[in-house]
Simulated assay, not measured.
Amino acid sequence: MAKRLLLILFLFVLGDIYFFQAFSTVIHGSIWHNMYWGIDILLFFGVFSLIFLRRAGYDVQETATSLITAFLIVFIPKLLAVPFLFVEDLMRIFRYFPPRSIFLSEIVLFLAGAILLVIFFGLTKGRYFYKVREEVLSFPDLPMAFDGFKITQLSDIHSGSLSDIKRVRKGIELANAQNSDLVLFTGDLVNNKASEMEPWVSDFNRLEAPSGKFSVLGNHDYGDYVQWESVESKALNLNRLKEIHHEMGFKLLLNESIAIEKQGEHISLIGVENWGKGGFHQYGDLAKATLGLDADTFKILMSHDPSHWDHVTLDYNQHVHLTLAGHTHGMQFGIELFGLKWSPIQYFYKQWAGLYQKQGKYLYVNRGFGFHGLKGRIGVWPEITVITLRKSVV
């Protein structure tokens, strides 16, 4: 992890030096130049200090979050403006390296300023900038009674990060406005402790669906990322979290399935505990959850971590038609405009946001309702997913 961080910092330094060419072309004076480099030196000093303190055993999570936010504000606008300078340099090669264009440097600074405004929006209003994303999925073996059946999926509420009651309530109202038959929550109700959800229970209890509300646990729900006084206190925390799901009106599925019935027909809703790659706990047990189900039953699986789909679900001996996941948050940072979809998280997860299809099976990865780590969302907005099931003609 430290080596990867050092490589990232090195790339930031190269981009920063390059961007300074445009900065110094437009803005003159040693005072401004010293301020430019002074801010950078303070940030890098902070990073190396955190690395040292973390290795010494100190809890630096909150400080690290603030530092990451500062890095985004300072460096991302510069890095995204660098390609324009690179194109200019390619043109300068054929003109025997004349002085850098003041006009183009002004454009680059303007672009960096615009990106900075987007980042500020993401770190303030963007964290509650809820978006409804709709998908219509067709299946030849869907029971006829479920043709047109609507599912609202929420994921990654991370209640310990939420603070704006009015905006959160608007998000809940937006979810209810979809008038779905079923509401499903795919894990990470809290950051660490059940107590984080206590102030929000009555609000999320307002979610409504005639066919029920169901949920599963995410990696943060087990309390694995906080130091507990004892094993017993950690267990009590998890039990309290399970009670909160019930108080919110959700049926928590723990490696089990339940039949959703309509007009004499049914589909199977399956919920597994968290199962993740790369060091995450693998509590999920799909075999246990599907025990006793008929092979030809239409199945919807809730599994918090999308890596479970690749590593377990796809090659499972029973056909799972649709898997709903979350976990990645789309890294809360990326670009989703005009058909372009990119986030650094895609280098860690092949399926990180939206709809995926393979071997006749679907996976939908929700971008998350809340936020964690980075105290905002930039380009990857909080999501309310609405999936409509249709019966296709064979």
Rank of each mutant, 00 (worst) to 15 (best):
residue 6 L to S: 08
residue 7 L to M: 00
residue 12 F to E: 01
residue 13 V to I: 08
residue 15 G to C: 08
residue 16 D to Y: 00
residue 19 F to L: 05
residue 21 Q to K: 13
residue 31 I to G: 13
residue 35 M to S: 12
residue 36 Y to F: 14
residue 41 I to Y: 08
residue 42 L to I: 15
residue 46 G to Q: 13
residue 47 V to H: 07
residue 48 F to I: 09
residue 48 F to E: 02
residue 50 L to F: 13
residue 56 A to T: 04
residue 60 V to R: 05
residue 67 L to G: 13
residue 77 P to F: 08
residue 86 F to G: 10
residue 87 V to S: 03
residue 87 V to A: 10
residue 88 E to D: 15
residue 90 L to S: 07
residue 90 L to G: 09
residue 92 R to M: 00
residue 95 R to F: 07
residue 98 P to G: 05
residue 99 P to E: 04
residue 102 I to P: 02
residue 105 S to F: 09
residue 116 L to C: 08
residue 117 L to S: 07
residue 118 V to H: 05
residue 120 F to D: 00
residue 123 L to G: 04
residue 125 K to N: 11
residue 126 G to Y: 01
residue 127 R to T: 03
residue 130 Y to C: 03
residue 132 V to Q: 06
residue 133 R to L: 09
residue 139 F to I: 09
residue 140 P to T: 09
residue 141 D to E: 10
residue 143 P to L: 07
residue 143 P to H: 12
residue 145 A to C: 04
residue 145 A to T: 03
residue 148 G to Q: 06
residue 153 Q to C: 05
residue 153 Q to R: 01
residue 154 L to D: 02
residue 156 D to I: 05
residue 156 D to V: 07
residue 158 H to S: 12
residue 161 S to P: 01
residue 162 L to G: 05
residue 164 D to Y: 13
residue 170 K to L: 15
residue 171 G to K: 09
residue 172 I to N: 09
residue 173 E to P: 07
residue 174 L to E: 14
residue 179 N to T: 12
residue 179 N to M: 14
residue 180 S to P: 02
residue 181 D to P: 01
residue 182 L to Q: 01
residue 183 V to I: 11
residue 194 A to F: 10
residue 200 W to S: 11
residue 215 S to Y: 00
residue 215 S to G: 13
residue 219 N to H: 03
residue 220 H to Y: 04
residue 220 H to I: 05
residue 221 D to L: 00
residue 227 Q to E: 15
residue 228 W to M: 06
residue 231 V to R: 13
residue 232 E to H: 14
residue 232 E to P: 11
residue 234 K to E: 06
residue 243 E to K: 09
residue 250 F to C: 07
residue 251 K to E: 14
residue 253 L to Y: 11
residue 254 L to G: 10
residue 257 S to G: 12
residue 259 A to P: 11
residue 260 I to F: 10
residue 260 I to G: 10
residue 262 K to P: 07
residue 262 K to I: 03
residue 262 K to V: 08
residue 262 K to R: 15
residue 270 I to T: 11
residue 273 E to Y: 13
residue 273 E to C: 13
residue 275 W to G: 04
residue 278 G to S: 12
residue 279 G to N: 11
residue 279 G to T: 10
residue 292 G to C: 07
residue 293 L to N: 08
residue 295 A to N: 10
residue 302 M to L: 05
residue 308 H to F: 03
residue 308 H to L: 05
residue 311 H to S: 15
residue 312 V to I: 11
residue 318 Q to L: 14
residue 326 G to R: 09
residue 326 G to D: 04
residue 328 T to L: 02
residue 331 M to Q: 12
residue 340 L to G: 02
residue 349 Y to G: 01
residue 349 Y to H: 07
residue 351 Q to T: 14
residue 352 W to N: 06
residue 352 W to Y: 02
residue 357 Q to C: 14
residue 369 F to M: 06
residue 370 G to E: 04
residue 370 G to L: 08
residue 372 H to C: 14
residue 372 H to I: 15
residue 378 I to K: 00
residue 379 G to H: 00
residue 379 G to E: 01
residue 382 P to C: 01
residue 382 P to V: 00
residue 390 R to P: 05
residue 390 R to H: 11
